[in-house]
């Protein structure tokens, strides 16, 4: 199942990572399941609450998640995933990303930002049914 998003949204989430460099950016993706994947309809930028270590950690305040869930509900959408950046690190999930991942069936998009410029963007689907068997699966990104 691919992650489907428009060129504008793809560029927007990558640009967010460039704007916050050398800190990590983070945001919430609202969308809906489609026949050929999950389609992103909207991005919601979120503040990184990890101001103590923003260059290598991110955390989204629950209040922002609740606001996003409310907005999604009103628009007939769902929270279908999240994005964040890895400043001067690869677009691969880290042990921290894995340990802190609890949104099963959702996409975790990571953009590498090297010296301020977004390079690779990858998506990983959190598969499994619980903490015991969870795993990240590489998910194709289709930019339309």
């Amino acid at each position: 199942m691919s992650l489907l998003l428009s060129k504008d949204l793809y560029d927007e989430l990558r640009q967010h990572g460039e704007e916050t460099y050398p800190h990590e950016c983070c945001g919430i993706m609202l969308g809906k399941g489609a026949s050929n994947g999950t389609r992103v309809h909207k991005l919601m930028r979120a503040g990184n609450t990890r101001t103590d270590s923003a260059h290598n950690r991110y955390s989204i305040a629950p209040q922002e998640l609740i606001r996003a869930q409310r907005e999604a509900r009103q628009a007939g959408l769902d929270i279908i995933g999240f994005y964040h950046s890895h400043p001067d690190h690869p677009a691969q999930w880290s042990q921290t990303d894995y340990a802190e991942a609890h949104w099963f069936g959702c996409s975790y998009v990571i953009t590498a930002v090297d010296h301020g410029h977004a390079t690779t963007t990858n998506s990983f689907l959190l598969a499994g049914t619980g903490e015991e068997d969870k795993r990240f699966e590489t998910q194709p990104i289709a930019v339309e």
Binding site: E24, N56, R57, Y58, P62, T96, D97
Partner: peptide, 12 residues
Amino acid sequence: TIIPSIAGGCCS
């Protein structure tokens, strides 16, 4: 509202 946390980040 039940809302799982969302956090992570690259390594130091």
